[in-house]
C-alpha cells in the first residue's frame, strides 16, 4: 500500500496506548523484576520503555512461543478425538526494534511456504507490529549488514521515529492503518519537513555504525561452495559449549520438535523450540547420528544462515544483525566472529 505518514505528539502517545489496550493485548519492552529489559504485556502506558537496551529474548516468542500448543488430544476409553489449537487473539507489539520486525517477517515467510502452517500464521496475522527506529545504533548491532535496520522500508505495520517532541508514524499495512484510525484525533498528516528530518536521522544513524564492514558476501561464497576447511569448523567449534543459547535468542531460528504433555487426563501436543546445536537434534532411532560431531553442527547452523543455497530460497541471510548471539555465546561462536573467520579462512587465536 501507499505509505501514509503521520505524526503524533509525545504527550498523546499514552492516550493512543490506552485506546490500543481497549481492544488488544499490548506487548512492549518493560523493566523486568531485576532491572533487565523484557518484552511483556502491559496494563498501563507508563510501563512502556522508550530509551532501552533491546531485550535479550527477541519478540519471536509472540509468534512462535517456546512451547506452542498445536493439537488437543482427548481420550474417551479407547476412542480419541483430535482438534487443532489456534491462538488468533489480537496483540500489538509496541516499540519493537527493526531487527525484531525483520525477524518476525522472516519467520512468517518460512511458515507461509507450502504447506503453510496455519497454527503459526493465525497468530502472526493477528499481530500488529509497531516498531521504533534506532536513531542510535546499539553497541553490538550490525543490522546495516543484513538490511534489517536501523530504519526499515517495510515489514512493519507502523514504524515510529523519535523526532524530538513528537513521533513520526509511517503506516505500512492495513493493520497499521486500523491502529491509527482507532485514535485518529491524535494523529495528523506529517509535513514534508518532518519526513525529511526522518531521512536525515536515518542517514545519521547509519553513519554512526562507523567502520562496520559487512563480510556476509565473501563468507557466503566460501560456505556455499564447500570451501571452508574442516579444520576451521573444528577450531570454531572449540569455542562452542553446545548450550543452544544462540538458537533460542536468534530472531530467525525456528527449528522445533513436537512433544505430547498430559493435562487433565488428556494430552496437549506442543511444538517446542529445539536447536541444531544439540547432539540429539539429528540422532536417529538406530543410533546413527550424521551430526554427531560439534563441528558438523556448527557447520549446519552457518550453512543454513549464510549459504547461497538458502539465500536463493529465502531471499535473505538468516540473520537480522541484532547482535544477541554475541551477548549470549559463552564462547565466541557468534555470527560476526564466524563470518569473519570464514572470510579470512582462519580463526582468531
Amino acid at each position: 500500500m501507499q505509505p501514509i505518514v503521520y505524526t503524533i505528539e509525545k504527550p498523546d502517545i499514552a492516550k493512543w496506548l490506552e485506546r490500543l489496550l481497549e481492544t488488544a493485548e499490548v506487548i512492549a519492552p518493560v523493566a523486568g523484576y531485576s532491572g533487565e529489559v523484557v518484552f511483556s504485556a502491559i496494563s498501563s502506558p507508563a510501563q512502556v520503555l522508550w530509551d532501552f537496551e533491546n531485550p535479550l529474548h527477541p519478540a519471536k516468542q509472540f509468534v512462535l512461543p517456546q512451547t506452542d500448543p498445536i493439537v488437543a488430544i482427548k481420550r474417551n476409553g479407547q476412542r480419541h478425538e483430535v482438534e487443532p489449537i489456534y491462538d488468533d487473539s489480537r496483540r500489538v507489539l509496541f516499540n519493537v526494534r527493526s531487527c525484531d520486525v525483520k525477524g518476525i517477517a522472516f519467520l512468517t515467510r518460512m511458515q507461509e511456504m507450502e504447506p503453510a502452517d496455519g497454527s503459526y500464521l493465525r497468530r502472526a496475522y493477528s499481530l500488529t507490529v509497531i516498531s521504533l527506529t534506532c536513531n542510535t545504533p546499539c553497541p553490538l548491532g550490525f543490522c546495516v549488514c543484513t538490511d534489517s535496520g536501523p530504519f526499515l522500508n517495510g515489514d512493519y505495520d507502523i514504524q515510529l521515529t523519535d523526532l524530538g517532541g513528537k513521533y513520526l508514524a509511517e503506516v505500512g499495512s492495513e493493520k497499521g492503518e486500523a491502529a491509527v484510525s482507532n485514535a485518529a484525533n491524535l494523529f495528523r498528516t506529517a509535513t514534508e519537513g518532518e519526513v525529511s528530518l526522518r531521512k536525515r536521522l536515518e542517514t545519521a544513524a547509519r553513519n554512526r555504525f562507523g567502520q562496520e564492514t559487512c563480510h556476509f558476501a565473501s563468507a557466503m561464497r566460501r560456505i556455499s561452495t564447500g570451501r571452508v576447511q574442516d579444520a576451521l569448523w573444528e577450531k570454531i567449534s572449540d569455542w562452542c559449549l553446545e548450550c543452544g543459547g544462540c538458537s533460542l535468542i536468534c530472531p530467525t531460528c525456528y527449528c522445533f520438535s513436537v512433544r505430547d504433555r498430559a493435562r487433565d487426563g488428556n494430552w496437549i501436543r506442543y511444538r517446542i523450540w529445539d536447536s541444531c546445536q544439540y547432539t540429539a537434534f539429528t540422532l536417529e532411532a538406530s543410533g546413527h547420528n550424521p551430526h554427531e560431531q560439534r563441528k558438523d553442527r556448527i557447520k549446519r547452523r552457518f550453512f543454513h544462515k549464510v549459504s547461497a543455497q538458502y539465500y536463493m530460497r529465502d531471499g535473505t541471510v538468516g540473520c537480522v544483525g541484532c547482535g544477541r548471539c554475541i551477548k549470549v555465546c559463552l564462547g565466541t561462536a557468534d555470527m560476526p566472529a564466524v563470518v569473519a573467520a570464514i572470510r579470512k579462512g582462519k580463526w582468531h587465536e
Partner: peptide, 12 residues
C-alpha cells in the same frame, strides 16, 4: 534422517 514435521519446516 531424523524427521519430525514431515513438511520441511522443523529442520531436523
Amino acid at each position: 534422517r531424523m524427521m519430525q514435521c514431515g513438511i520441511g519446516k522443523c529442520n531436523h
